[in-house]
Amino acid sequence: MEVRTIKVFTTVDNINLHTQVVDMSMTYGQQFGPTYLDGADVTKIKPHNSHEGKTFYVLPNDDTLRVEAFEYYHTTDPSFLGRYMSALNHTKKWKYPQVNGLTSIKWADNNCYLATALLTLQQIELKFNPPALQDAYYRARAGEAANFCALILAYCNKTVGELGDVRETMSYLFQHANLDSCKRVLNVVCKTCGQQQTTLKGVEAVMYMGTLSYEQFKKGVQIPCTCGKQATKYLVQQESPFVMMSAPPAQYELKHGTFTCASEYTGNYQCGHYKHITSKETLYCIDGALLTKSSEYKGPITDVFYKENSYTTTIK
């Protein structure tokens, strides 16, 4: 009895394709271990004539594949690729409408935090270190965002349907971005203890939790000093293409032309909904596939993004 075979390709990165001759009487799992086709788990399936010449994702289970996976995804987590594939199996079914010149995501599976993050990423200057993220990001900007969303979920250790947080998501993504040249110098002034300067680099240099107003941050924000008295913390120097200011959701007025974009969060910790506000020729609110415009805006804002380049204080 002759062994019926077909020729397929296996890959971990969709760049390096490895030619395989597979036995049609055995499952993919018996031949390769966990195997995925377009995100779908085909591990328990036997090869079919229609699979001839198709590319299958496999887990990096030998040295060659491990090197290829690390170079593309910059992670050695053995569960990463499987999590990416199972997320992709959902995100490829989502709709990605162009809204006001940006790629958004039609609401499904509690994905409003991903839509808000995706919209924000198209408006701030950011370059990702893992080629996987950078490639998928370019495709997302062009309207094909399924891979990018699935990668975000995998890097953030999230599953489809789980509630997510924009600030946490951005923080994970910033860790995989090139923020080497970003720098922030802060000064804390206390009447009792004097003053202390701190220099922050990388992710810490672009994120701040405690106030939404970048102007206020430049002037000074009140913080408790270690001595128990009130101290003032203010920005001395900022070198970065953008800054992200966050605070627990509270009524906040966004003035046209003073910011790049913002995240609105309605609801409580267990259950809520994100919308995205962007400042173009007027203010726009993007909620999944829905767009509304207004000249002014007041609502429960939790993150505001500002364009920056270089700032030095005039406070002496």
Rank of each mutant, 00 (worst) to 15 (best):
F9T: 10
F9C: 09
V12F: 07
V12R: 06
N14R: 13
N14D: 10
N14T: 12
I15T: 13
N16W: 07
L17P: 15
H18E: 05
H18L: 05
Q20M: 11
V21C: 14
V22N: 04
S25W: 11
M26T: 15
Y28L: 13
G29M: 10
Q30E: 14
F32Y: 09
G33C: 01
Y36V: 02
L37P: 05
D38L: 09
D38C: 10
G39P: 02
G39H: 09
A40R: 10
A40Y: 13
A40P: 09
T43H: 12
K44V: 14
K46N: 13
K46E: 14
H48P: 12
N49S: 13
S50R: 11
H51L: 02
E52Y: 12
T55G: 07
F56N: 01
Y57S: 07
V58I: 13
V58A: 04
P60F: 06
D63S: 13
V67I: 13
E68R: 07
E68G: 03
A69I: 07
A69T: 08
E71Q: 09
Y73E: 08
H74K: 02
H74V: 01
H74Q: 07
T75Y: 03
D77I: 04
S86R: 13
A87Y: 05
A87E: 09
L88P: 05
L88M: 09
N89I: 14
H90W: 09
K92H: 03
K93Q: 12
K95E: 14
K95D: 15
K95F: 09
Y96R: 10
Q98W: 11
N100E: 13
G101M: 00
G101S: 06
G101I: 01
L102A: 08
L102P: 00
S104A: 10
W107S: 04
W107A: 02
W107N: 07
A108F: 05
D109F: 03
N110E: 04
Y113N: 05
Y113D: 05
Y113V: 03
L114P: 04
A115P: 01
A117N: 01
A117K: 02
T120I: 14
Q123F: 01
K127H: 13
K127W: 06
L133H: 02
Q134W: 02
R139I: 04
G143F: 05
A146N: 03
N147W: 07
N147V: 07
F148Y: 03
F148L: 13
C149H: 02
C149A: 09
A150H: 03
A150M: 00
I152H: 00
A154N: 07
A154C: 07
N157L: 03
K158G: 02
K158E: 04
K158F: 03
T159L: 08
T159I: 09
G161R: 01
E162K: 01
L163Y: 15
G164R: 06
R167G: 04
R167K: 14
E168M: 15
Y172K: 13
H176N: 06
H176F: 12
D180T: 11
V185Q: 03
L186A: 05
V188H: 07
V189W: 10
K191S: 14
K191G: 14
T192Y: 11
C193I: 05
Q196S: 13
Q197V: 10
Q197C: 05
T198S: 10
T198F: 15
T198D: 06
T199D: 04
L200G: 02
K201Q: 13
V203N: 04
A205N: 01
A205L: 01
V206T: 02
Y208F: 15
G210E: 03
G210V: 04
T211C: 14
T211V: 09
L212G: 02
S213P: 08
S213D: 12
E215S: 06
Q216H: 08
F217N: 01
F217G: 05
F217C: 05
K218Y: 03
K219Q: 11
I223T: 11
I223K: 05
I223Y: 12
P224R: 14
P224F: 10
C225I: 03
T226F: 08
T226H: 13
K229D: 15
K229R: 14
Q230E: 09
L235M: 01
V236R: 05
Q237V: 11
Q237C: 13
E239Q: 11
E239W: 05
S240W: 01
P241Q: 11
F242L: 02
F242Q: 02
F242Y: 00
V243H: 02
M245V: 04
P248I: 02
P248K: 15
Q251E: 11
K255T: 10
K255E: 14
G257N: 06
G257D: 07
T258D: 14
F259A: 01
A262P: 00
Y265D: 00
T266N: 07
N268I: 07
N268S: 14
N268L: 02
Y269D: 15
Q270V: 15
G272A: 00
H273Q: 00
Y274G: 05
K275C: 08
H276M: 13
T278H: 08
T278L: 12
S279Y: 00
Y284D: 11
Y284L: 14
C285F: 10
C285K: 09
D287M: 13
G288Y: 00
G288M: 13
G288R: 03
A289Q: 07
K293T: 14
S294C: 14
Y297C: 07
Y297A: 02
Y297D: 04
K298S: 15
V304S: 00
V304N: 00
Y306H: 00
K307A: 13
N309Y: 12
N309F: 09
Y311F: 13
